[in-house]
């Protein structure tokens, strides 16, 4: 069965970030032979004076394919992990969504989108989770992280929000590589231009210092922009961090 595991509000200013904890849970899920984890995505939620957050208010989520008999073990492990590893002063929340059992996926997606636009309450998160049959639990502090955890699952499910955790590296002489070679990378599903213009497999791409993908249409997409300058150089270059900020 395919599940989404989403966590939020696990850190403080000095501790490892929520992304590091999500990656560790994803790694441990595989180490324990419970299933296969996918990439972790970061989802930006609303920044507002009425919302308690450490510094950025982002949730982290990944999907995994697990054996049905492993579900309870995965949930228990993730819950214990958060209680053990979350930073003092944090308010961690955990959401586990079994996608095969999710009847109203649109409701979960709408909750995620709402968390980017408005201040939501814990009560509304628990109510929605119960309605949709999702696991939602708090593991310290005020437990306020359940809101972001549920929202992160919704945004991941929606497939059009957030950046993938981590940056990619390539073996590319001179930092130039073909679109076809990029698309062959394990972590890249598609190469797409930022403005929607067509990108051909044989086009060449100049790699920037940091190469990251974003979640679009449920896929890990590497966005590129047209290069300026010499016409005999690569047609495209990867997006800078600043261009990816809005994702």
């Amino acid at each position: 069965m395919r599940i989404l595991i989403s966590i939020d509000d696990t850190d403080n200013l000095e501790s490892p970030g929520t992304g590091a904890l999500a990656s560790q849970i994803a790694y441990d899920l595989e180490s324990n032979c419970w299933g296969k984890s996918s990439f972790v995505t970061r989802h930006q939620l609303l920044v507002h004076p009425d919302i308690p957050y450490t510094s950025h208010n982002s949730a982290m989520c990944f999907s995994a394919d697990i054996g049905e008999e492993c579900l309870d073990r995965v949930i228990t492990y993730a819950a214990n992990f958060l209680e053990r590893e979350s930073a003092p002063g944090s308010d961690p929340g955990l959401c586990v969504a079994v996608l095969d059992r999710l009847q109203e996926s649109g409701e979960l997606i709408r909750f995620g989108q709402a968390a980017k636009q408005s201040v939501l309450t814990k009560e509304s998160a628990y109510e929605r989770a119960q309605q949709l049959g999702l696991h939602l639990s708090e593991h310290g502090g005020t437990g306020q992280g359940v809101i972001g955890a549920l929202a992160g699952a919704g945004l991941r499910l929606g497939g059009n929000d957030g950046r993938l955790k981590g940056q990619l590296s390539f073996s590319a002489p001179g930092g130039i590589i073909s679109v076809a070679a990029l698309a062959g990378h394990d972590m890249i599903d598609e190469v797409r231009s930022l403005d929607g213009s067509a990108v051909a497999d044989f086009d060449m791409v100049r790699l920037g210092d940091k190469v990251k993908t974003v979640l679009l249409d449920g896929r890990s997409v590497l966005l590129v922009v047209a290069t300026a300058g010499a016409s005999d150089g690569p047609r495209w270059q990867t997006c800078s961090r600043q261009l990816l900020k809005k994702y």
């Binding site: 590091a20 970061r42 450490t54 510094s55 940091k210 600043q242």
Partner: peptide
């Protein structure tokens, strides 16, 4: 954390752990 950095210049308040 790398995932929270948004500025191209590493040395930027926007990339700092202590900016909220």
């Amino acid at each position: 954390d790398e995932d929270e950095q948004i500025a191209d210049d590493l040395l930027s308040c926007y990339n700092c752990r202590y900016r909220r």
